[in-house]
Computed example of a mutant assay.
Amino acid sequence: MSRYSLMRAIERVSRPEWIVVVLTATLAACAPLPPAANQVTDQTAHQDTHQAAAAGMARAADGPLPVPPNLIALTQSTGQTRLIAATHNQSYWPLSQYFETQRNEAYCSVATSVMALNALGIRRPESTQYPDFPFFSQEDFFRSIDPQVANAARVSREGMTLDQLGTALSAFPVEVRKFHAGDLTLGQFRDLIRDTTSHSDRFALLNFRRVEIGEAGGGHWSPLAAYDAASDSALLLDVARYKYPAVWVPVTQLYAAAQAVDNVSGLSRGIVIVGTRANSN
C-alpha cells in the first residue's frame, strides 16, 4: 500500500477501522517474501539453510527448532551435570567466553573460527567493530586471508570446505591440522575429540552434516567443547544459536555426520584442530 493510498483509506474509516488499516499496512511491509521467492537452495551443502519442513519438524513460534530426542541440550539439568562431571571439558571454558552467533546463514565456519582465535589468547588485530579494542571478528576475518583461498562474498553464498578453512586459518599465527573423517576410524575420531577437549590451548572445529545427528539442515561448522566418556558424547557449541542450542551428541553420530561427503570438494567432512604455536603471542 502506497503512502497516498494509506492516507485516503484512513480518511474514509472510523477510529477502530483506522487502527486495522495501519496494522495491516505495517505487517504487509514487514512480511517475508513468498516461499518461492525467498527459498535458499543448499546446492553446496555448506549453507545452514532452513529445511525443517523437509525433515518433518515444525519451527517453534518463539524460538529455535526443537532439539531431537537423541540429543541433550546444555540448558537441561542433565546437560549441565554432564559438563561438570566430564573429565575432558577444558576447551569449554575459553570457548564459552567468546561464544558467537554466525552473522549470516553461511558464516558458520567464520563464527567458529573467530571463537577459537579469540579463545586462544593470541595477539589480536585491530577491529573495525571495536576500534579501541583489538579483537577477532566475523567482519574482519578475511582481512589477512588470500581472496583466492576465501573471501567474504563467496563464503556468504557457499560457506567453506574442510580444506578451505584449514588453509584460511593458516594465515593466522596458529597451528592448524586437518582431518577428513573418511581417513579416520571411529576410535581415531573419538581420540581426537577427547584429547583436544582436554586442553584450553587447542580446539576442535567440526565440519558435519546436520541430518546425521537428527537435526534439520545441511552442512555446518561448530566447535566441540567437551567430551564425556560415560555417555560417549561430545558437546557441540552450535554457532547457529537462532536455530539450535548447544547440545551433547553421541560420538558415533558425530562420526557419521563428519563422514558425510561435501558436495563441493567431493571429500568427507571432518575436523580442523587449531591451537597455539611458539611465538604466537
Rank of each mutant, 00 (worst) to 15 (best):
R3A: 14
A9S: 14
P16D: 11
E17M: 12
V21L: 15
V21H: 12
L23S: 04
T24V: 14
T26I: 13
P34A: 11
P35L: 12
A37K: 04
N38G: 15
Q43C: 01
A45E: 10
A52C: 06
M57Y: 07
A58C: 07
R59V: 13
G63V: 14
G63Y: 11
P66Q: 02
P66C: 09
P68V: 13
N70S: 12
L71M: 13
I72W: 02
T75H: 02
I84R: 13
H88A: 14
P94A: 08
P94E: 00
L95T: 00
L95C: 01
T101A: 08
T101F: 01
Y107Q: 14
S109A: 15
V114G: 05
A116C: 03
A119Q: 00
A119I: 00
R123G: 04
E126I: 03
E126V: 04
D140N: 08
T161C: 10
T161F: 01
L165V: 15
L165E: 15
L169K: 02
R177I: 00
R177Q: 13
K178W: 07
D191L: 07
D195H: 08
S198N: 08
G217N: 14
G218Q: 10
H220G: 03
A225I: 10
D228V: 06
A230D: 12
A234H: 11
P245I: 10
P245W: 06
V251D: 12
T252W: 05
A256Q: 14
Q259P: 03
V261F: 06
D262P: 12
N263K: 04
V264P: 02
V264S: 02
S268Q: 06
I273G: 10
V274C: 04
A278V: 13
N281E: 12
